[in-house]
Every structure is written in structure tokens, then in C-alpha cells.
Write a protein that binds this DNA or RNA. Structure first.
Length: 436
RNA sequence: CGGGGCGUGGCGCAGCCUGGUUAGCGCGCGUGUUUUGGGUACACGAGGCCGCCGGUUCGAAUCCGGCCGCCCCGACCA
């Protein structure tokens, strides 16, 4: 993208409404614009980041055998009346009537809908297990949206639903999702820790919140440093091996980890002092097993091995995709702007032409731009060098290729790594090789 | 949902208390000169029915009433 004709409205000053770093930076770097309280338009740069995160989430879901589908945002109220949640959900649910005065709603989640879809077609235990997911916009009419995209009313969420014949199967599905989540967050450059969450009336121990560490997180968290040594990368654990999954799950759940509301000082005291870690955390995912909470009331049954109908055991698994954009920034920024991890950056590099009109600068920039094309944001604006440096730092591309008349004459460019601030003078070929 | 605050060019703000004729400042934007590796300097210029509706008054950004929007603290949430 050529910045001179790109729609990337950066701001020098911070809009008054933005309180936290990620919100400020998303507005300043031209990623999003608010259109109503808690509702945002994703501008080109922000959308690229959102798509990158979505892609990683999708790849890791697929990797453990989940299947993608896409359910609508608008749902009929009847389904929610069947589960009893139409009344329970309260004002957070955005209720709508169509022209025929039919009661509809903008989905805040999809348990009812997926259950309806599944009950229509799944008739035998032999078709189980199933894990289905979709990445779709949700709406929850929060009383008080805040923190920009981190706590909006409209948000993009990946929600998956597992269906198993029995509890043992549900446990396996649950562990697969936990594995997919850890890999997802790792690829996003985040340190995520699963922390035990409330199971409410369901009971048991199959509910975890995934908390990522960021100085501006909303809750205080405590965990054992042993988490940092667990290897759950692809290859280390097979999602098809129940034994691997069990070993992984035990590793993830035996060490101490809790948010402040579930913090147990006695258990904490048993963690070796040098392994105790504390910090602030942001919830970016939640997985839980809910048994037959929806299958039973909604009449979702399959024939069991003995031919008798059984309500399947289910679970649901959410990742706040749009929230993650903010969360990544919270976890990775400095006074000058965003520092994108390579995996989610809108562009791999910014190409700064410090002197437009200088034959050598123009030629080198065009050559690099021609080779990197869509992966680079070419700052070809007629601005001063300082403006370009500041905007590049603000937008946070992992690399900056600085082409100035000084080096250009000798065929050299300067390569700067945003995360470390390190710069070095290299040849065009080296710069291209390093970035690609 | 309780408590507080704010709506004035694209952004950040002043003016309002103590109504008065061309509504101001910084940034940004346009043109020209200048500068040329970390938001350059100067000049000229464009851009606002002062959130909306109603009221008081000779006169309302300013006073009064209602409405809408947005933000902050708390309770609640992926």
C-alpha cells in the first residue's frame, strides 16, 4: 500500500475519550474509528490486523479437527425461549422485531442456534464427536462499553461447540480446545495462562479463562512460573492422542494460577517463592463444559449404542477476536506506539522514502516496493522525515526500511527493528531477505 | 443500573459564571517560500447554523427547560 493514497488517518493528538493505551493507539494509528458507543468501524490497517488474528485462530481450530461453519447474526427468539434464556438474558440482549412483528435478536452467542442445527441432522452416536466453530460478529448491549475494542458492544468472536456422547468424550474435546487455545495465543505473541473459572450450576472443573499478561489488565493474577516451561507447540502433543491430551491438561492444571477473585493465599503460599509470578491480566478466551444444559431442554437426542436416545454432552469455547487486537497492543507497545508481533502486524515493514524526488531514493524504494508489494506499507508521502519516523513507530510495523539520500547513493538502506530499536545499514538484497 | 462530567471547524482546547454586533488558540488541512535523517520556519488561505428543540431577552455559544449523544468511577461482561 502506498501511504500517500492509503486511508490511514493517523492522529498526532490523543482523542479525549481514549483512556487506555490500546484504545489511544488504535485511534491514533488509524486502525479503527468509533461510530457509536462500543461500536467501531475497522479501517484498512485495523482490518488487516483483525484478519491476521482471525486467520491464526482459524488455523489452530482446524488443526485440532474443529470444523468451520457460519451462523447468522440475527436469530429468532423462539430458540431462546426453548432454552429459557430469552427471559434470563436481560437487557444485554438486543431484541429486534421484523416487519411481520416477529421477535428476533442480534445474537450475543450461539448455543441455541448450534443446538438447533445439530438436532435437525445428528441422529446417531456414531456421528459423534463433533466440534464446530464460527467466527462471527456478536452484540451484547453492555451498559457501559469502554476500553475501545476491548469491551465493545459489537465484537468479533470465535465460538466453538463440542458434541460428545458422554462425559469422557466431552473431556477429550475440552482438552483439545485448551491445546488449540494455548497454541493460538502463543502464535499471537502472547503469554496466556488458563485459570480456573466458575462453573456455576454445572459444577466440575471444566471451565477455564485464558488470561494474558499485560500491565494494564483489569484483574490481578497469580501464577506459577512452571507454566513458562510447558511445550505445547505442534508436534510436542498430538490432539489425536487421549494420553497426550491428558498429560497436557494435567500440566496446565496442576500448577497454581488464579485471578484475584479466585485467589487462594494458602495454595499460593505453597508455590516456591522464586516461581511466584504476579501481574495484571486480560481475559481473551473462555472454555467450558456445560453437559446437557441445551441439548436436554431443546430435545437434541441421538441414538446411543443400545438404540436408546441420549442427550449429548456439550461444551462451548470462545475467543474474543476483536478484543485480541486491543489485548495484543496492551501487551506490546511503548511510548512511541504499537509494537506488532510479526504474526499479526498489518504489514511486515514500513518503507520510508525520506526524500521523495531524489532519484536514488525513489529508485530504491520502487524496487523494494515492487518486490515486497502487499507486505509493505510504502510511505511515499511528501512529508518530512520526522513525520514518517513518528508514524512508522506509531503504526508499529515489525521492520522499517529507511531509504535516505545518504545511504541511497551507496545503494544502502537502513533496517530498523521496531521491537528493539536496533538499526543497521544493509544492502537492498539483505533488507529484502531479512524481511521476507 | 447508581454516581459524576462533557458536547464550540478533522483533533486537542479557551470563551459561558458577569448575554452585546467579525467566536478565538494550538495541531492538522490547502497554496507559496524555506527546511531536508526524528512531527522545520514564515506568509497567505479554506473550514464552525457553538449537539438538537423550545423558552427568556432589543440581542443567546453564554441564562432557563426538555431531549439526544459521548466519556469517567462503581456493579456486570468474550
Amino acid at each position: 500500500m502506498r501511504l500517500s493514497h492509503g486511508f490511514v488517518p493517523t492522529l498526532k493528538e490523543t482523542p479525549a475519550e481514549a483512556q487506555i493505551a490500546s484504545h489511544r493507539l488504535m485511534l491514533r494509528a488509524g486502525l479503527v474509528r468509533q461510530t457509536s458507543a462500543g461500536i467501531y468501524a475497522w479501517l484498512p490497517l485495523g482490518l488487516r490486523v483483525l484478519r491476521n488474528i482471525e486467520r491464526i485462530v482459524r488455523e489452530e481450530q482446524d488443526a485440532v479437527g474443529a470444523q468451520e461453519l457460519l451462523m447468522p447474526t440475527i436469530q429468532p427468539a423462539e430458540l431462546w425461549k426453548e432454552s429459557g434464556r430469552y427471559e434470563d438474558y436481560g437487557k444485554e440482549m438486543l431484541r429486534i422485531r421484523d416487519r411481520h412483528d416477529r421477535e428476533m435478536l442480534y445474537g450475543p452467542t450461539n448455543e441455541e442456534m448450534i443446538t438447533d442445527l445439530l438436532r435437525q441432522s445428528l441422529k446417531s452416536y456414531r456421528e459423534l464427536p463433533q466440534i464446530l466453530y464460527h467466527i462471527q460478529w456478536k452484540f451484547r448491549d453492555e451498559v457501559r462499553p469502554r476500553f475501545g475494542v476491548m469491551r465493545g458492544r459489537e465484537f468479533l468472536m470465535k465460538d466453538a461447540y463440542s458434541v460428545d456422547l458422554d462425559y469422557a468424550g466431552a473431556v477429550v474435546s475440552y482438552r483439545k480446545m485448551m491445546l488449540a487455545y494455548m497454541r493460538t495465543f502463543q502464535r499471537l505473541g502472547l503469554k496466556a495462562i488458563p485459570m480456573v473459572a466458575d462453573t456455576g450450576p454445572i459444577g466440575g472443573d471444566l471451565s477455564h479463562e485464558f488470561i494474558i499478561l499485560a500491565p494494564t489488565g483489569e484483574s490481578q493474577v497469580y501464577y506459577d512460573a512452571a507454566f513458562e516451561e510447558i511445550d505445547y507447540s505442534s508436534g510436542a502433543i498430538s490432539h489425536e492422542s487421549a494420553e497426550d491430551l491428558q498429560r497436557f491438561f494435567e500440566q496446565m492444571t496442576t500448577h497454581y494460577a488464579a485471578t484475584d477473585e479466585k485467589h487462594d493465599p494458602n495454595a499460593w503460599a505453597e508455590v516456591a517463592t522464586e516461581r511466584r509470578r504476579e501481574g495484571r491480566g486480560i481475559e481473551v478466551g473462555h472454555i467450558f463444559y456445560f453437559g446437557t444444559k441445551y441439548s436436554a431442554p431443546m430435545g437434541f437426542k441421538v441414538a446411543g449404542p443400545d438404540g436408546k436416545p441420549v442427550a449429548p454432552e456439550m461444551g462451548s469455547y470462545g475467543v474474543g477476536v476483536s478484543r485480541l487486537v486491543g489485548a495484543v497492543i496492551e501487551a506490546s507497545h511503548d511510548a512511541d506506539g504499537i509494537i506488532w508481533p510479526d504474526s499479526v502486524a498489518p504489514f511486515k515493514a514500513a518503507l520510508l522514502n525520506l526524500k521523495r524526488g531524489d532519484a536514488a531514493c525513489d529508485r530504491i524504494c520502487e524496487e523494494i516496493y515492487g518486490k515486497l508489494g502487499g507486505d509493505v506499507l510504502y510511505d511515499d508521502r511528501e512529508d518530512r522525515a520526522g513525520v514518517k519516523f513518528a508514524d512508522a513507530d506509531l503504526m508499529g510495523h515489525p521492520w522499517q526500511v529507511v531509504v535516505g539520500p545518504r545511504g541511497a547513493a551507496a545503494g544502502k538502506v537502513e533496517l530498523k527493528r521496531r521491537a528493539t530499536g536496533q538499526r543497521e545499514e544493509v544492502s537492498i538484497e539483505d533488507a529484502l531477505a531479512r524481511i521476507a
